Simulated scan of single mutants.
Amino acid sequence: MVQFLKKNKEIGLLGIMQVLIFIVLAFGQWHKTSDMYVFAGVFLLQVISCIVLYYLFRKIFRNIEEEKKQSMLLKQQKYAEEHKKVKAQLDDQLEDIKEQVSHMLKNLQMNADKMSEKAFHEAVNEIISNSEQLYQVDFCDNKTIDAILYNKSLLAKSLHIPFDIQVQIPQQLNIAYVDLICVYANLLDNAIEANCQVDETQRMLKITSALKMNQLIVKVENAKPANLHIDKNSGKTTKTDTSEPHGLGLKILQRTAEKYHGDMLIQDKGHEVSVSVFMENVNVGTIS
Rank of each mutant, 00 (worst) to 15 (best):
D92P: 02
T238Q: 03
A194P: 00
Q100K: 03
K259G: 12
V183T: 05
V19K: 12
L105F: 08
I128K: 15
L14C: 04
D189C: 02
V137R: 01
V52T: 11
R62N: 15
L216A: 00
C196P: 00
K224F: 02
T33S: 11
Y135C: 13
G15W: 00
E81Y: 14
S234R: 14
G41K: 01
G12V: 11
A176Y: 14
N214I: 05
S288Y: 08
E244G: 07
H229G: 09
I23N: 08
K239N: 12
V183C: 06
T256P: 09
N190C: 01
D231F: 05
M204S: 09
L228S: 00
T201N: 11
E126S: 11
L5A: 07
H261S: 14
S243H: 13
D263V: 00
E117H: 03
L105N: 07
Q215G: 00
A119M: 09
T242F: 02
I230C: 05
R58W: 07
I169N: 06
M115W: 09
F39L: 07
K32E: 11
K59Q: 12
E82F: 11
F27G: 11
F61Y: 14
K232W: 01
K152M: 07
M36V: 13
H103T: 08
A191H: 04
D179C: 12
V86S: 01
I127F: 05
S243Y: 12
F57R: 10
G270E: 12
N227K: 06
S131I: 11
N130S: 15
Q109A: 15
V167P: 00
E132W: 07
R62H: 09
M110V: 06
I128P: 13
K87W: 01
Q166T: 07
I21W: 03
C196D: 08
I266Q: 00
L253P: 03
V52N: 03
H160N: 04
M115N: 10
N142F: 06
D96C: 06
N195W: 03
P162V: 07
E82K: 10
D113P: 06
I148W: 08
L211T: 03
V24L: 09
N214H: 15
Q168A: 08
K251M: 13
N142H: 04
S153K: 05
S129F: 15
L108Q: 10
L13S: 09
N111Y: 10
I287K: 14
K6Q: 15
Y135H: 14
T144D: 03
I169L: 06
T237L: 08
V277S: 06
K269S: 08
T208P: 00
Y79E: 14
Q89C: 00
G28Y: 03
F57M: 14
D179F: 13
Y54F: 15
L205P: 03
L173M: 03
D92E: 15
K269Q: 12
V198M: 01
N107I: 08
T237S: 13
E10L: 13
K69M: 10
E65C: 07
I252N: 14
N8K: 10
V86A: 02
K152V: 01
K59I: 10
K7S: 05
V42P: 00
E280N: 15
E126P: 04
M36Q: 13
V178F: 09
L74T: 15
R62D: 15
L155S: 08
F61L: 11
I207E: 02
K152P: 02
R203G: 04
V273K: 01
A257D: 02
T237P: 05
